[in-house]
Amino acid sequence: MRVSEHVMGTVFSLDVRATAPDVAARAAADAFALLREAEARFSPFLADSELRRFERGECAPSSDLHEVLAIAERASAASGGAFDVRAPDGSLDTNGVVKGWAAQRAADALAAAGCGAFCLNAGGDVVTRGVPEPGRGWRTGVRDPHDPRRMLAVVELGDGAVATSGVYERGSHVWDGRTGRPATGLLAATVVAEDLTTADVLATSVLALGPDGVAWALDHGARDAFGVRPDGRLVTAARAAPSPGA
């Protein structure tokens, strides 16, 4: 079963395999409902969202908002302040956390509902479970920021997630929290991780940190990571080998 919907400012698509059609349909409807709810509650563009009402002091943070802000605080501390949900104008913008967090929650709901294998694509950020067919994982292409017709890499996943953060489509919308200025060291950063919450936050952090962020990500939950400099050169890093006897 395949279904897609425009939500959270992008297109989410879902491909479910190895699942009874009625189970898949109900699970998909519930998953997309979770995504629409997250958009309504945490959008920085809706004046009556929970995020904006909290910012104005009109409500206490719900457990979900508290969780989102806690994820952001941990990422900020780990990145030395480069990751920041406080925009340069002082307003809260949790988009660097919420899309991956909401998509991961939707994926967890799909798995709990009995979906045996699926791929949830959140506007290019992907979370998967199982495999589409025996002997082959889910394949996600990572595009060249200089040429949308060319793929820099193809990531094959079973259970896992991949996220890319870049400035090549929306311009300089990611800032370095240490300076309050747009992040310019990389055009794009891609992270593979166990879950999409982690992959998405790490990808944004790498973009904010610049080239040094690629190696940093491997020490903070990434299975793999790479970046693209403005001149097109790739930035990669190898995970440090364990010391003898470790």
Rank of each mutant, 00 (worst) to 15 (best):
A102T: 01
E156G: 05
A75G: 05
A241G: 03
T164Y: 04
E156V: 09
R181H: 05
W101Q: 00
R26H: 07
T236G: 01
P134I: 02
V127C: 11
A112S: 15
A153E: 14
A111C: 08
A107D: 11
F226M: 06
D200R: 05
A113Q: 12
R26G: 13
V192Q: 07
T236A: 07
S4N: 08
E50D: 07
G135P: 09
A70I: 01
D144L: 06
D231T: 08
L69F: 00
R239A: 14
A222I: 02
R86Y: 01
A161S: 10
F42D: 02
D219E: 15
D231L: 08
E133D: 06
K99R: 14
R223F: 12
G180F: 12
A217D: 06
S79R: 12
S43M: 04
A225W: 04
D224C: 00
M151H: 04
P132H: 10
N121G: 05
L152Y: 06
P134Y: 02
Q104P: 12
G124P: 13
A237T: 06
V16A: 11
R233N: 08
G210R: 06
A193Y: 10
F32A: 03
A82F: 09
I71F: 02
F32W: 07
R53P: 02
A40Y: 00
G210M: 06
D212C: 09
F83W: 05
R170D: 10
V201W: 05
P145R: 03
L92S: 03
G9Q: 05
G135E: 08
L207Y: 07
R136Y: 01
V228M: 10
L152Q: 04
D231H: 13
M151F: 10
R150I: 04
N121I: 09
V174T: 13
H6I: 11
A163L: 06
H66Q: 14
G221Q: 03
V192T: 13
G160P: 07
P148H: 11
R86I: 14
L92I: 05
L234P: 04
P61I: 00
V191W: 11
C119V: 11
V98S: 01
R139H: 03
A215K: 10
A217M: 07
V68A: 08
L120K: 05
V228Y: 12
V97G: 10
R41F: 00
A20L: 10
A24V: 03
F12D: 00
A241Y: 01
G100T: 06
A215Y: 05
V142C: 11
E73D: 15
